[in-house]
Design a binder for these strands. Structure first.
Lengths: 120, 120
DNA sequence: ATGGCAGTTCGACAATACTGGAAATATCAT
DNA sequence: ATGATATTTCCAGTATTGTCGAACTGCCAT
């Protein structure tokens, strides 16, 4: 789910972000960094009913933009920076004029994770 | 319509691109460059019924991603590179880790327009 | 003015997405 | 085992989006 973006994957990711709640949610997770946030904390922060939030979390997960890990009773969600890189990469490569719009600099977490879970 | 992107504008643009036909359409216009393409030519290229295409063109126009100009009987559509820059800019600034994901290089048309219509 | 070409708007229908309460599932503490 | 907590899944209703033929509008040539 971290490889090169094709058109279908891109459409999935764009659709996932193209919603008020989900864009806010994704931005929140990006800010939260590699530690991520528990579903409950997200629901509090965004003031969205539990079941609706779950729906949006599933949508973003399906698109590969966020990842889920369990930590005791809580489910922790965190942004997948590699996926975001892939999306931005696709857009700049295929939807800009062909001129180099961006070099291969990558999206990075804001701060180091406390529990190291960086992909190899 | 060419200024800085806020969340609402971003959602509009993401939603506009998050569809098979519209993403293909936008990519086509990006390839076509500043000269753009007539609606009929687009319909031929993508093999979409006229009225459906019109719907998608309107959608992309509403989102400010493409522009329309009349040339006698034909309506010419062309990609708005500045808008694409704005979108990618918003994503990298708000949805990446905060680390500089891309410097201020911009999306540019592939080749010079034959009829010069470059914004100041 | 008439006719024809380019494209849009209308309208009706099908499909998909979103919302939120209620019931179910998983985990932990006692 | 029992109960509390965290979150998901189910369900039903509502809203939005997409599709395409048919009718319409704008522009040009004669």
């Amino acid at each position: 789910m971290t490889d090169r973006f094709n058109a279908d994957r891109t459409i999935l990711a764009l659709g996932a972000l193209a919603h008020e709640n989900r864009l806010a949610l994704f931005r929140l997770l990006v800010q939260a960094g590699a530690d991520g946030m528990a579903a409950g904390a997200i629901a509090d922060a965004l003031d969205i009913p539990n079941s609706s939030l779950s729906f949006h979390l599933a949508h973003l997960t399906r698109a590969g933009l966020i990842r889920q890990t369990r930590q005791s009773r809580s489910l922790i969600y965190s942004a997948d920076y590699a996926a975001m890189n892939g999306l931005v990469g696709y857009l700049t490569e295929n939807c800009c004029g062909g001129a180099a719009c961006l070099p291969d600099m990558t999206c990075e977490p804001v701060h180091e994770p406390s529990i190291s879970r960086q992909r190899a």
